[in-house]
Design a binder for these strands. Structure first.
Length: 890
RNA sequence: GGGCGAAUAGCUCAGCCGGUUCAGAGCGCCUGCCUUACACGCAGGAUGUCGGGGGUUCGAAUCCCUCUUCGCCCACCA
């Protein structure tokens, strides 16, 4: 039964238990779709790395997804939020290699099989951790469907995709310049080589002409590669060098004779206009070399050291040490013409930040242009939309300039490339296969599988299908593909989002989702991205422990609008998360108060079709809070639908804190205490509007709302807010008159309070108040007015005598008698200031309305509105001036 | 080198399909209150030439141009 609620909200004692109840009840698992039912709502969770520990990026990403999925679930959609973990090839391998290093071992010491076993052992331990952490922040994913990208089913999907693309000629193997990380010792895709502006140098080096007639100066940022030069290129139209085309230069240090060729790729304006050509170590040079039949001479080893067969001191030297040595040698030879400071973009490994080396290497590639075409078309046609919209252009730009995808990685952790080579010298067949081969299908000879594994993203891009069983024809695939919304960080727009679109279109002929919501990044107060290496991170679980998951979630949602970054202060958790913590506490106490006062006579809750309270029984305040509630339902629902989650949070926050707690609860206290009749009506209205507030807030703050909701009267033991029905809008509840009239009451109370504060009337002392306008609303809420402003209200003209005055928006006046405390000078100054403000406003209106241009050109309704304003302000001003004249006389 | 976004109270941000009670919210700050839900609170209050300059318009935080400063995406000028 209902246990008494603790006075202080203590999230830690209830969140975990509540989550278990939800999970055990299977609330996060969709039911099998029924015929005629509307389509399920599906979100694919971006699978965290299997070794990941929860950070704020996950917190943000999953809070947003959970909010959306809970919203749709409450609206009655059959929802699936599908979680999983990613094997994360390089990242995971690096982690385990580091562990090995602590034992003084490398992966080569223990061998491939043992290493793989070691990684599996590790990820079996770490994999479940991140998922449990996601539960701790309330994620309502369907854990019964959790996948891992190396699961057999998903591995089958990878092979299927590989085989199909290969059959279509979209996968090929070839020797090209790829991005190579010397530290990870693997090829990378273009996306994985992050370009960063770096301060470097442009060295102008002189290459002597072979005929001894002088020299040709080339400019380079990477002098160490000259050892692999096999030519020098100039622009064919460059007059400076035209006579040299076809001649040769002597490559310094090496002594090799290399030709001078003409190529359009050269920009005569840059550097010296002559470029050293190193086909084995630069993508542009590679192309030039091909066009002019220049040999590709490799001078670097995979680990970033120079080749062993080079002359001393270059042999085996580190690439950056070699750079210095080469420059020094040129200088010594008198061939170093000049050095310029030069800023250029240098690629860095996205996993270890090592400077990437362009390297000639045999790799597997996916031909992307044919896949990009429909993916781009889907965006152009509007079928695929981005939030915020501008992100769509980034997507389009990438698609338009798509380059082939290098998918092979020289790693041991991942999906082995499904290609087998026949070792029989006379056969040498190569087979791509869905199943493992143990002998050559062509000649029956021995085969060996390709040593390399696939890029992690080659499995990730299939996840919207493979996690549901593809390529098998499963019920899940039929029910939950395609999905609806993808929520993720903009950093993986190309890595993942764009490729998922391409894969789904290619293999299923459908988009995997129709909306891509790209949220911002979590940063510190210096706008630096939170990261482990910077040490500026916030541990979401730390926040959960201190303030609760709801406080974390509210702060995230309320603090971030569409497409902007979330800035938090890692130095001051308390201040960063105060909004969420304070709000949770406020809500808790409002709930505690209401629940503790439901013991009096009650009748069934006021609500659509269940309302046993007759309209005539409702007081103005009741009608007002019902109308405010209705407005909040309409606006908050719209905000959720439009992904404006911060707006939704703010709307509900305001409704609960300002409308319900500050005004309505204060208003009904006498009724609840039995000091006034109508306790049952107040209880019914309070209960109903409070319940709706809990529902509207549940997607953002699931734990506290559920806890309070379960305590409401008349709840079945197994009733849960998670699957309660989203509040319906009811236009009849939109009582404009109540909104307006109670607004007048609020204004009157505030005005009296202000005057009391201005004159420092002791809190306990009652004051006499006279309002010039005997509005029915004042009479109706007289008790409320008098209680909340500690006053005695009467109507009529302002009395003489000392007091404070105010003019209300309807032009009526208010007089607060302050027999002893009044300071006439202060009051005159106060009113004078107010009159001044009004005079300015009125003057502006007179100017505006006297302007023929305005009256003629502005729309009629705008002009009418301006006239009304002028009228109102004039009335107020007149009343004020009258007061001032009285004061002046007194 | 192209493209995009942001610059609004001390801080973090709303507002920005043009119209002065739209200059806002939360946090912080000031004043007074332990008023029997909440001091993680209540009541009241102060604070901004809406980045600089120019323009369009009857009217601009809101549209256009430009400058400055941050941030992001793309890029084979070695």
């Amino acid at each position: 039964m209902t246990e008494p609620l603790p006075p202080q909200y203590d999230p830690t004692s209830l969140e975990h238990r509540l989550y278990q109840q939800w999970e055990e009840a299977g609330l996060f698992t969709p039911h099998a779709p029924e015929p005629g039912e509307s389509r399920p709502f599906v979100i694919m969770m971006p699978p965290p790395n299997v070794t990941a520990m929860l950070h704020m990026g996950h917190g943000l990403n999953n809070t947003l997804q959970d909010t959306l999925i809970r919203f749709e679930r409450m609206r009655g959609r059959n929802t699936l939020w599908l979680p999983g973990t990613d094997h994360a090839g390089i990242a995971t391998q690096n982690v385990v290699e580091k562990l090995l290093a602590r034992e003084g071992l490398t992966r080569f010491d223990i061998g491939r099989e043992a290493f793989e076993a070691r990684v599996w052992e590790h990820v079996r331990k770490t994999g479940p951790v991140i998922l449990e952490q996601l539960k701790a922040i309330g994620s309502s994913a369907d854990w019964s469907r959790t996948y891992f990208t190396l699961d057999p089913d998903l591995s089958a999907a990878v092979r299927e995709a590989f085989v199909r693309l290969h059959q279509k000629g979209l996968i090929y193997r070839g020797k090209y310049i790829i991005n190579w990380c010397p530290r990870c010792a693997t090829a990378l895709s273009n996306e994985e080589a992050e370009k960063t502006e770096t301060d470097g140098h442009l060295w102008h080096l002189q290459y002597p002409l072979a005929d001894g007639s002088g020299h040709l100066t080339v400019a380079t940022t990477r002098p160490e590669t000259i050892l692999g030069d096999s030519g020098v290129a100039v622009h064919p139209k460059d007059e400076r060098y035209q006579h040299l085309i076809g001649h040769q230069v002597v490559l310094p240090i090496v002594g090799r004779l290399i030709p001078i060729v003409a190529d359009d790729a050269i920009d005569p304006e840059f550097g010296s206009g002559a470029v050293k050509v190193t086909p084995a170590h630069d993508p542009v040079d590679f192309e030039i070399g091909r066009r002019h039949d220049l040999p590709a001479i490799e001078v670097m080893q995979p680990d970033g050291r120079m080749a062993a067969d080079l002359p001393a001191p270059y042999a085996n030297a580190d690439r950056f040490a070699a750079r210095k040595l080469i420059v020094t040698e040129f200088d010594r030879l008198g061939l170093l013409e000049k050095v310029e400071a030069h800023q250029h973009a240098v690629g860095h490994c996205y996993r270890c930040d090592t400077v990437v080396e362009p390297r000639l290497s045999e790799q597997w590639f996916v031909r992307m242009a044919p896949l990009a075409r429909p993916a781009l078309a889907a965006y152009r046609s509007g079928e695929l939309r981005f939030i915020p919209e501008r992100r769509g252009e980034e997507y389009a730009q990438w698609m338009e300039n798509i380059r082939d995808w290098c998918i092979s990685r020289q790693l041991w952790w991942g999906h082995r490339i499904p290609v087998w080579y026949c070792d029989e010298p006379t056969c040498g067949a190569m087979r791509v296969s869905r199943t493992d081969l143990s002998f050559c299908p062509a000649c029956g000879g021995p085969v060996r599988q390709d040593e390399d594994v696939l890029d992690t993203w080659f499995s990730s891009w299939l996840v919207p299908m493979s996690s549901l069983g593809w390529p098998a024809d499963t019920a899940d695939l039929a029910s939950y593909f395609p999905g609806d919304t993808l929520v993720t960080a903009p950093e993986i727009l190309f890595f993942w989002v764009a490729r998922m679109v391409m894969a789904a279109l290619e293999f299923k002929g459908q988009l995997p989702f129709d909306t891509v919501y790209l949220h911002g990044t979590v940063r510190d107060t210096d706008k630096r991205k939170m990261s482990k290496s910077l040490g500026n991170g916030i541990d979401p679980l730390d926040v959960v422990r201190k303030y609760g998951a709801d406080a974390l979630r509210y702060t995230i949602v309320a603090g971030m609008s569409v497409g902007t970054d979330l800035i938090l202060d890692p130095e001051d958790l308390e201040q960063s998360f105060a909004p969420g913590r304070n709000f949770a506490n406020k809500l808790w106490n409002a709930g505690r108060f209401l629940l503790g006062n439901l013991t009096g006579p009650t009748r069934p809750l006021a609500g659509k079709h269940r309302n046993t309270i007759k309209p005539a029984e409702l007081l103005l305040a009741d009608r007002w809070i019902i109308a405010r509630c209705e407005a909040t339902v309409v606006e908050a629902t719209l905000a959720y639908e439009r992904y404006r989650l911060n707006d939704a949070a703010a709307l509900v926050y305001h409704f609960i804190w300002s409308d319900l707690a500050d005004w309505y609860i204060e208003q009904i206290k006498p009724r609840l205490y039995g000091d006034q009749p109508g306790g049952d009506v107040a209880r019914a209205v309070a209960c109903r509007t409070f319940e709706i507030a809990l529902q509207l807030l549940h997607p953002v703050m699931p734990f506290i709302t559920e806890t309070l909701w379960k305590q409401l009267p008349g709840r079945a033991a197994d009733a849960t807010l998670v699957t309660s029905h989203w509040p319906q809008s009811d236009r009849r509840a939109m009582d404009q008159a109540a909104l307006r009239d109670f607004g007048l009451v609020q204004e009157l109370i505030s005005a009296i309070r202000t005057i009391r504060a201005e004159y420092k009337v002791p809190p306990g002392q009652s004051v006499r108040v006279k309002a010039s306008n005997a509005h029915p609303a004042y009479e109706a809420e007289r008790a409320t007015i008098e209680r909340l402003s500690k006053s005695k209200l009467s109507f009529g003209a302002d009395p003489s005598g000392p007091g404070g005055s105010a003019v209300l928006t309807d032009g009526s006046t208010l007089f607060v008698s302050l027999d002893d405390v009044i300071d006439l000078g202060q009051e005159r100054a106060r009113l004078g200031q107010e009159a001044e403000r009004l005079r300015d406003l009125v003057a502006a209106q007179i100017r505006k309305l006297g302007n023929q241009q305005f009256v003629a050109r502005a729309p009629a309704d705008v002009v009418a509105k301006e006239r009304e304003k002028q009228q109102s302000w004039s009335d107020q001003l007149r009343a004020l001036e009258q007061k001032l004249s009285v004061l002046g006389a007194g």
